[in-house]
Design a protein around this nucleic acid. Structure first.
Lengths: 114, 114
DNA sequence: GCTGCACTTAACACACTGGGCAATTAACAG
DNA sequence: CTGTTAATTGCCCAGTGTGTTAAGTGCAGC
């Protein structure tokens, strides 16, 4: 996890239901680590580590208020995810299904030519 | 990786640049395992396993043509990703930045009430 | 049936993940 | 100074991921 590209780090961070739940919670506003951990059947250190993963992925910012570390959502990396998915929208959107099929077929022909 | 939810499996599959490159290649149409492996500085078995990960995530379908396994893109799982990201769009889209801030603040007030 | 090609599986190494508890740091409250 | 609360870090363990090479499987063609 040392020098992974942003997109990989973001996807990896999102590939865990606990972390996605943390993000969902943070949509409702700031929360401390203990507050965030409360709903989970999991130790505080475990949640703290999940938050660190999210933080390193740039999805969460931690502030400092005395002994509390109020966490805020930073959805910026999700913009990149959105852009990436956009490149595949033609392949999963209903209204684009036929277009996608045509694209794939036409490009397959080009491939065979080469 | 046994009984992971679809979204987690999809995100995990996407959290690897090699696999994303494989998907990008498959946008241009069917390809065999060897064809797919060709651009990578990586053994064939390694690529084969990457494809298996994509297959188990439902992102790739493998056919059977004699000794070849033509792989096709199946972007259906990405629809779910798109839906998920949509839930955060208000937090990263320029035009929604102010709205998101308001939402977060208003919900933070509600939280404090409780 | 042997040989070759496409691909998968096996066996192994190694790093990372995610969970637990215990100990530690940091900051407030008396 | 002492004790409490918030949060992190260290250590251990089990499981998983990713790469290698070598062996196995399945199909085609002479």
């Amino acid at each position: 996890m040392s020098d992974v590209d942003t997109l990989s780090a973001t996807f990896a961070a999102l590939a865990d239901p606990t972390r996605r739940a943390l993000l969902a919670r943070l949509r409702q506003g700031e929360a401390t680590v203990t507050q965030l951990a409360e709903p989970f059947a999991m130790s505080l250190p475990a949640v703290s580590r999940h938050l660190k993963v999210l933080e390193r992925a740039g999805l969460v910012n931690k502030g400092r208020d005395a002994q509390w570390r109020p966490c805020r959502l930073d959805a910026a990396p999700l913009r990149e995810v959105d852009e990436w998915v956009k490149g595949y929208r033609a392949f999963f959107e209903e209204r684009y299904d036929r277009l996608a099929a045509q694209l794939a077929e036409r490009r397959a022909e080009h491939t065979e030519e080469a």
